[in-house]
Amino acid sequence: MADTIDRTALQQFLLRMGDNTLILGHRVSEWCGHAPVLEEDIALANTALDLIGQTQLWLDYAAEVEGAGRSADDLAFLRDVWDFRNVLLVELPNGDFGQTLMRQFLYDAWASIMLGRLQKSADERVREIAEKAAKENAYHVERSADTVVGLGDGTEESHRRMQAALDYLYPYVGELFESDATDAAMVEAGVAPDPAGLREDYDALVGRVMADATLRLPEKAYVHRGGRSGTMHTEHLGHLLCTMQWLQRAYPGCRW
């Protein structure tokens, strides 16, 4: 499969998938030991680990397609900001617990639709990764949706915080549905769907959950972009990488 298509485009697509899960997984792991209650702490750690596990699969394949002798670990720990292809949404700071769960839901909702489509990919490897990730994601999206509803339709304070989180994060949602030449190549090869085509299902799902949560979706939100194309990340990604990569940077090749 991979031999007959544009390998650069395929590698970019795989980086986009893997960098999303890597950066979000790292962000969620920052809650470890800090969540408001023990049960949520463990649940968030489980989610982070699932995402890092998915990263391993995506970046393993990305490294293979690249064929430059790099491993998934090299891609995760030895690239700098400008080489990351995650959407801006996942690199944004955690904020409070509500903002973290709002970001999680906005991502999970997209992933649930994307992974569903990828299970019909013409690329067997992509199909297999999507099948495994979809099971984990089905639980993530149920949990994050429940929490968004619980907090949105909760106390006056929790509602206010969730509305503020939605207002802050929603302008970053649009980037998930941008299409470029890489996406066109993936559609052409039958590897992945056109991101723009996922928007309708996404709006239906997010609209339903926000209605249950008594939250108002911002109208005509500005779209922050630049993450998945790599043209411009937010200032936050560099700080995240400093923490995530320091050990491999300080002690190159260190293993334990």
Binding site: L38, E39, I42, R143, D146
Partner: peptide, 20 residues
């Protein structure tokens, strides 16, 4: 045992705490 706001979250928390 664990804490949860309702039965659905109790099951979810149990899944995360005790069946990982």
């Amino acid at each position: 045992s664990l804490h949860a706001p309702d039965s659905e979250m109790a099951i979810k928390n149990a899944r995360d705490v005790y069946t990982r």
